[in-house]
């Protein structure tokens, strides 16, 4: 970038980065479809493993759906920064005069729209397949909408920490899974409360709080982690 060019506002930088990453996601629809397909297939495995008894499946469905969503986010987050790291565009971002936290957050937002958001929208379908009672379907969708924000941000942190390591996939799950425990607990409890007729709102509020908190803290940590990965 020539030095006489004025600096762009952070909002413009965020938007540009968001669109750039969004376009690159559009060029490979398989990357968007894969996590959904993964979700779909693992959901199929549970009735096969546990038996087709509808009442038992319904009793376990909120936990199954949330655990599989967590695994799906684990799977996609491994590749979040990989291509940017390999083709050097991450280095460009780090050299640019804008905070890495903002540009990384733009990429993560685009990534979340293509994965977590879609998954949350489609989750009632899978809920119906597992016999989740109707009262829980909306809460499932909302809880995944809020929960995938946390899952994606934590996954992005794991990806940023391990992107420079060869065969970092297994390490990534070790780093991420313990941090995802509260999200899983709040999410499943919200759906369970909705099914049992309790009040899911307080659990959804907790999830929302977690989402907002991680939106504040995680980008800073991700920025620092990306710089470490680039230096190593």
């Amino acid at each position: 970038m020539p030095s006489d060019q004025p600096l762009l506002s952070l909002r413009v930088v965020f938007l540009r980065q968001f669109l750039r990453h969004g376009r690159s996601i559009m060029t490979s629809p398989a990357d968007v479809a894969n996590p959904l397909l993964f979700f779909f297939m693992v959901i199929t495995l549970f009735p096969l493993g546990l038996g087709p008894d509808p009442t038992r499946l319904a009793a376990l469905s909120h936990g199954i759906l949330w655990v599989v969503a967590l695994l799906a986010s684990l799977m996609v987050s491994a590749k979040l920064f990989a291509s940017d790291f390999e083709d050097g565009s991450l280095e460009q971002l780090a050299l640019a005069p804008y905070p890495l936290a903002v540009t990384a957050l733009a990429e993560i937002s685009a990534h979340w729209l293509a994965t977590g958001f879609l998954l949350a929208l489609l989750s009632p379908l899978f809920g119906v397949m597992l016999g989740l009672p109707d009262e829980g379907l909306l809460t499932l969708s909302v809880s995944l909408l809020l929960g995938t924000v946390c899952l994606t941000l934590i996954g992005a942190l794991g990806s940023a920490l391990t992107v420079s390591i060869r065969r970092g996939g297994l390490l990534l799950s070790l780093l991420i899974i313990p941090l995802n425990v509260p999200v899983l607990i709040f999410g499943t409890t919200a759906v369970r409360e909705a099914v049992l007729g309790g009040n899911p709102e307080s659990w959804l509020a907790l999830l929302g709080g977690l989402a907002l908190g991680s939106l504040v803290v995680a980008p800073l940590a991700i920025g620092a982690a990306l710089r470490v990965s680039l230096d190593s």
Partner: peptide, 11 residues
């Protein structure tokens, strides 16, 4: 060490 510092702070 720096990567571990970031991770342990988040933890």
């Amino acid at each position: 060490a720096r990567a571990c510092a970031v991770l342990s702070l988040v933890g």
